[in-house]
Amino acid sequence: MLQQPNLRDRLRTLSKCVCDGARLMVGQGDYAAYADHIRRTHPDRSPMTEVEFFRNRENARFGVGNTSGFRCC
């Protein structure tokens, strides 16, 4: 028989969803999901560190190194 998750577990899950959504809205992906994806699908590559991942997403969001002319500010 499956046990229903208690309120604390449900709130923890909701909190993670809200935080993940907020990160995605500002251009920050989920590092744990990224690292898991790299380990599963690209075993020959090592994942970026968390700091490298943050900088990579930030640079992608603001067009750093982009030659198409996009600039945030």
Rank of each mutant, 00 (worst) to 15 (best):
residue 1 M to R: 12
residue 2 L to I: 00
residue 3 Q to W: 11
residue 3 Q to D: 03
residue 3 Q to H: 07
residue 4 Q to G: 05
residue 4 Q to P: 09
residue 4 Q to E: 13
residue 4 Q to Y: 14
residue 5 P to M: 01
residue 5 P to A: 00
residue 7 L to F: 09
residue 10 R to K: 08
residue 10 R to S: 00
residue 11 L to V: 09
residue 12 R to P: 00
residue 15 S to E: 13
residue 15 S to N: 10
residue 16 K to T: 06
residue 16 K to S: 11
residue 18 V to F: 11
residue 18 V to H: 08
residue 19 C to T: 12
residue 20 D to T: 06
residue 20 D to P: 03
residue 21 G to Q: 00
residue 21 G to F: 02
residue 23 R to A: 07
residue 25 M to C: 15
residue 25 M to G: 10
residue 26 V to G: 07
residue 26 V to C: 12
residue 26 V to E: 11
residue 27 G to F: 08
residue 31 Y to F: 11
residue 32 A to I: 11
residue 32 A to K: 13
residue 33 A to W: 12
residue 33 A to K: 14
residue 34 Y to N: 02
residue 34 Y to F: 06
residue 35 A to M: 05
residue 35 A to F: 03
residue 36 D to L: 11
residue 37 H to L: 07
residue 37 H to T: 08
residue 37 H to Q: 07
residue 37 H to D: 09
residue 38 I to A: 02
residue 39 R to A: 11
residue 39 R to Q: 13
residue 39 R to N: 05
residue 39 R to G: 02
residue 39 R to H: 09
residue 39 R to C: 07
residue 40 R to A: 15
residue 40 R to I: 06
residue 41 T to G: 02
residue 42 H to R: 10
residue 43 P to F: 04
residue 44 D to M: 06
residue 44 D to C: 01
residue 45 R to G: 04
residue 45 R to Q: 15
residue 47 P to L: 06
residue 48 M to V: 04
residue 52 E to R: 08
residue 52 E to P: 06
residue 53 F to W: 10
residue 53 F to S: 07
residue 54 F to N: 03
residue 55 R to D: 15
residue 55 R to N: 09
residue 56 N to S: 15
residue 57 R to P: 02
residue 59 N to L: 03
residue 60 A to E: 13
residue 60 A to P: 01
residue 60 A to K: 14
residue 61 R to I: 04
residue 62 F to E: 05
residue 62 F to C: 08
residue 64 V to A: 12
residue 65 G to N: 09
residue 65 G to E: 05
residue 66 N to Y: 09
residue 70 F to R: 14
residue 70 F to N: 10
residue 71 R to A: 12
residue 72 C to M: 14
residue 73 C to E: 14
residue 73 C to L: 15
